[in-house]
Simulated assay, not measured.
Amino acid sequence: MKTDNLLQQINFIKEIDKVKYIQRKTKLFNSDRNENDAEHSWHLAMMTIVLAEHSDVPVDILKVLKMVLIHDIVEIDAGDTFIYDTAKSHSNTDEERIAANRIFGLLPKEQADEFISIWEEFESGQTNEAKFAKTMDRLEPLLQNVSNNGGTWKEFDVPYDKVYDKKKVIKDGSAAIWDYAEKIINESVEKGILKKTSK
């Protein structure tokens, strides 16, 4: 039985190598190279460890780490949906659900069930762990865009109100991090790297 588990786990490990090929719209800090999903997930995991003290409430750090490391694995099949996409919803989609069942289903049943449950918890964003994980997920590209003089905001003509609306979920996990994030969003307007328009 353990051998069967190992083979299934190795197949999963091979499959998730594809995460390294999923290109995101955001670029690395102070760079013109696009980030991939694996780099994004690694960075969120490090941010979780470093910034955990700023969570509004105590959280299970291991669970948050699991969330940030697996939340984008579904993009192997479903692709990356740009957070400011106007044509496609960034929320949990049928494609992502099918992808979660297929990819996590490569694992032994108990692990598959756990990973699907953790992915669902992250997507719903209701628990303290999910809120903090989403704080990390929204903070990283904000920092990247600021470092790149507007980055994807400029490239895709994203206005202040859209950025503010998508980023305000940060406050659900950390008031302190939201205070910082709100400040740099507003400073980005003052610097002219984020347009304050209604449309």
Rank of each mutant, 00 (worst) to 15 (best):
A99W: 07
F122D: 04
D113F: 03
K63R: 11
I49V: 10
E75K: 00
D85W: 12
F115D: 03
D94L: 15
L107I: 11
A45F: 03
T86H: 03
L142V: 03
F115V: 07
W42P: 01
L142R: 11
E39T: 05
N101A: 07
A78H: 06
K66M: 04
I70L: 11
D113I: 05
S55A: 13
I118E: 01
V59H: 15
Y84Q: 11
N128E: 09
R138I: 02
K88L: 13
E53R: 15
L69A: 10
K66P: 01
L62Y: 06
E39C: 07
Y84C: 12
I73P: 13
I83K: 15
I103T: 02
F82K: 14
A112F: 04
Y84S: 13
E114G: 05
I61H: 08
V59E: 06
L69H: 12
T127Y: 02
I70W: 06
A38I: 01
D72M: 12
T86S: 06
F115A: 10
E96S: 10
W119P: 02
H71S: 13
R138N: 07
D85R: 14
H54R: 10
F82W: 13
I61V: 11
D94V: 15
W119H: 09
P108V: 02
V64Y: 09
L106Q: 06
E110I: 14
M67W: 13
E121G: 13
L51T: 02
V50D: 08
E95F: 08
T127G: 07
E53M: 12
I73Q: 06
N148D: 02
H54P: 09
D72W: 08
L106Y: 03
E129A: 06
E95G: 09
E140N: 14
A130T: 10
A112P: 08
L65P: 03
P141S: 02
I49A: 12
L107R: 14
R97F: 01
A45D: 15
E96W: 10
I118Q: 06
S89V: 07
E123D: 13
V50L: 08
Y84W: 15
T135L: 09
D80L: 08
T81C: 12
N149T: 00
I98L: 04
G125D: 05
G105S: 06
F104Y: 01
A45Q: 09
A112C: 12
V50T: 05
T48H: 02
R97K: 09
K109N: 11
T81R: 00
A87Q: 15
Q111D: 11
E129F: 04
E123R: 15
E121L: 15
S117L: 11
L51R: 04
L44S: 02
E129C: 08
A45T: 05
D60N: 15
K109E: 07
K109V: 04
G125W: 01
L143E: 04
G105T: 05
D85A: 13
L106V: 01
K131W: 09
I116F: 00
L139I: 11
G79I: 06
G79Q: 11
A133I: 01
A130M: 08
D85H: 15
D56L: 14
P141Q: 03
D94M: 14
F115K: 13
R102I: 03
R138L: 10
D137I: 08
M67R: 05
Q144Y: 04
K63E: 01
K134N: 09
I49M: 09
D77K: 15
